[in-house]
């Protein structure tokens, strides 16, 4: 069943057309990676899909309803975004995460036992138990990213959007983030939509990749369908050799500059 649908989306900043006539269908409980070169419009696409940025033209449908006409709070109960850049907060990890409960509470309602259980689960899943009383400003980059992910988890979303969640992190923390995301999809059937820079990560961790080139969808499909030498040449302007790991059917991509 398709849960999120984009119908002929166009958007421009000033005079620059960033998204051009985009149609898209995302199914429930899958992991999608949006890939493309810098400036291709992949972040803008993520923001349009996550109700951050109303597109100039076209509609987004969330379960057949126009996403931008639904009340923001109702949307926030089902869609969550991990922003690319997050300020350093003067809050404890637990306090930060507790903000994830906001969409589920009325204006003056306090957090109750049930909220605390959900917050605890988010802390567990992101392995932050030992750091829950620590101030967010004292955490390392990887720990901080996990705290912000936990904030999104406390929101209990049906779809989690992540905007380059691994950028600036050490490789072990990058993998931590991607493992959390995979686990979320497996155990809670959360749909994941993320913008990824690392194409090998996209190949390994996604059910489907959405390739964006110059504001248009170049193609959408499983990594095996999409990750081929022609695509790498057309979209990323590189030569790619693609190997398949026979045991667990994972792709391994080796990229080189194009020879003229």
């Amino acid at each position: 069943m398709s849960s999120l649908e984009a119908a002929s989306i166009s958007h421009s900043f000033s005079d620059k057309h960033v998204l051009k006539q985009i149609d898209l269908e995302l199914k429930e409980g899958r992991i999608y990676s949006i890939i493309g070169p810098n400036g291709s419009g992949k972040s803008t696409l993520l923001h349009v899909l996550s109700r951050q940025l109303k597109p100039d033209h076209g509609q987004i449908y969330w379960k057949q309803a126009d996403l931008y006409r639904l009340p923001p709070k109702k949307v926030a109960q089902e869609l969550a975004l991990l922003a690319q850049v997050n300020d350093v907060m003067d809050l404890t990890v637990e306090q930060l995460i507790s903000y994830g409960r906001t969409p589920h509470k009325s204006m003056f309602q306090r957090l109750d036992e049930e909220d605390q259980i959900i917050i605890d689960e988010a802390i567990q899943l992101t392995k932050l138990e030992a750091l829950r009383k620590r101030n967010v400003s004292q955490l390392s980059g990887g720990e901080r990213q996990r705290a912000w992910i936990a904030l999104c988890l406390a929101q209990q979303p049906k779809v989690l959007f992540l905007d380059e969640p691994t950028t600036y992190l050490d490789i072990s923390h990058q993998l931590d983030v991607l493992e959390i995301v995979t686990q979320l999809q497996k155990t809670q059937n959360v749909t994941i939509v993320m913008v990824l820079h690392d194409l090998n990560h996209a190949a390994v961790y996604s059910d489907e990749v959405i390739v964006v080139k110059e504001g248009r969808i170049y193609g959408q499909g499983t990594p095996k369908e999409m990750m081929n030498p022609d695509m790498f040449k057309d979209v990323f302007n590189v030569h790619a050799d693609i190997y398949e790991d026979k045991d667990n059917e994972l792709l391994r991509i080796v990229m080189k500059p194009l020879k003229d």
Binding site: Q52, K74, A76, A83, V85, M89, L96, Y99, T102
Partner: peptide, 20 residues
């Protein structure tokens, strides 16, 4: 007060949490 606290988390996160 609560809205101001949400704003403190950054515009994108505040929006993601349903704040106008």
């Amino acid at each position: 007060i609560r809205k101001m606290n949400l704003l403190m988390l950054g515009d994108r996160t505040a929006k993601s949490l349903g704040a106008r």
